[in-house]
Simulated assay, not measured.
Amino acid sequence: MSSTSIVSSPPKLVVANWKMHGSLLRNQQLIEAYLQGLRSITRAEVVVCVPYPYLAQMTDLLSGTSVAWGAQNVAKYEEGAYTGEVGAQMLKDFGATHVIIGHSERSTAYCESDENIAEKFMMAKRYGLTPILCVGETLLEREAGVMERVVGKQLETIIRLFGGEAFANTIVSYEPIWAIGTGLAASSEQAVAMHEFIRHTVATADKTAAGTVKILYGGSVNPQNAVQLLNQKEIDGALVGRCSLDAEQFIKICQAVPENSVI
């Protein structure tokens, strides 16, 4: 007779990406609602990535809590005559622990190359920040069946420049560009297949790194699809955009993190 046992699964990571939203008052209200709702949630680790001007506010609101904070971009340079850029050490000065790298809303609008994104990725690592590398394909690329080639190229640029070990203790977020902001998320089957491909790609370069990298799903995550997505063992968490601006919806997404798994 076979038997099943209940085992604890590792906590999953839920990252709030506020994008270009916020005000001092609105942020305070949102964070207070986050903290209230998270009191009863033990299985989700939470990071809030905010616009640069609000990093100081996050140090006031989140210091001493279980919620970490970070930024949505970082310069590939340490310092210098780069007007408008923000360096990794500057983020560290405000307690940031994470930074989003290569989000499609930036890479498309500002024509960032894979090489440019790779340099930002490594700059974050050099300063002890955890990079959240966003990768994904357009609808045309998915319909053409080249989504793995596209995502693979984004990962392999970092591997080629810095080696597979660069992915150790970092985060990759699979964000199908065709899903972002549309309300239409990838199916759990599509997400799992890409997550498996991402981990395999990293493992081919460095097996140890592949065992420590967290792979999140992003792209119109909401309370309804989070239940199915976050219950997939291949999915280590979620990068949440629009729904992170609504405390009730964000808390429901965090509540979707499973308490345990059955084997």
Results as ranks from 00 to 15, higher is better:
Val7Met: 00
Pro11Ile: 07
Lys12His: 04
Val15Gly: 10
Trp18Lys: 05
Leu24Pro: 00
Gln29Gly: 15
Gln29Val: 06
Glu32Cys: 12
Ala33Thr: 05
Tyr34His: 09
Leu35Asp: 14
Ser40His: 10
Ile41Asn: 10
Tyr52Leu: 15
Tyr54Gly: 14
Leu55Trp: 03
Gln57Glu: 13
Thr59Ser: 07
Thr59Trp: 03
Leu61Phe: 06
Ser63Phe: 00
Gly64Ile: 04
Ser66Ile: 10
Ser66Met: 11
Ala68Lys: 11
Ala71Trp: 00
Ala71Lys: 00
Val74Met: 04
Ala75Val: 07
Tyr77Arg: 14
Ala81Leu: 08
Gly84Tyr: 05
Ala88Tyr: 01
Met90Asp: 05
Asp93Pro: 01
Asp93Trp: 01
Gly95Gln: 08
Thr97Glu: 04
Val99Met: 03
Ile100Tyr: 00
Ile101His: 01
Thr108Ser: 14
Ala109Cys: 14
Glu112Val: 15
Glu112Met: 13
Asp114Cys: 09
Ile117Pro: 13
Glu119Arg: 12
Lys120Pro: 14
Leu129Trp: 02
Thr130His: 00
Pro131Glu: 03
Gly136Val: 09
Leu140Pro: 07
Glu143His: 03
Arg149Cys: 10
Leu155Val: 12
Leu155Lys: 05
Ile158Lys: 10
Leu161Ala: 13
Leu161Phe: 03
Ser173Gln: 04
Pro176Glu: 01
Trp178Ser: 02
Thr182Val: 07
Gly183Val: 01
Glu189Ile: 11
Gln190Val: 09
Gln190Ser: 06
Val192Asp: 08
His195Arg: 08
Glu196His: 07
Arg199Trp: 04
His200Thr: 10
Ala203Glu: 08
Ala205Cys: 11
Asp206Asn: 15
Lys207Gln: 12
Thr208Glu: 05
Ala209Leu: 07
Thr212Trp: 02
Lys214Ile: 08
Leu216Pro: 09
Ala226Ile: 08
Ala226Trp: 04
Val227Met: 05
Gln228Glu: 13
Ile235Asn: 04
Ile235Val: 14
Asp236Ile: 05
Gly237Leu: 06
Ala238Trp: 04
Val240Pro: 01
Phe250Arg: 03
Phe250Ile: 11
Ile251Asp: 10
Ile251Ser: 08
Gln255Leu: 10
Ala256Cys: 08
Val257Thr: 12
Val262Met: 09
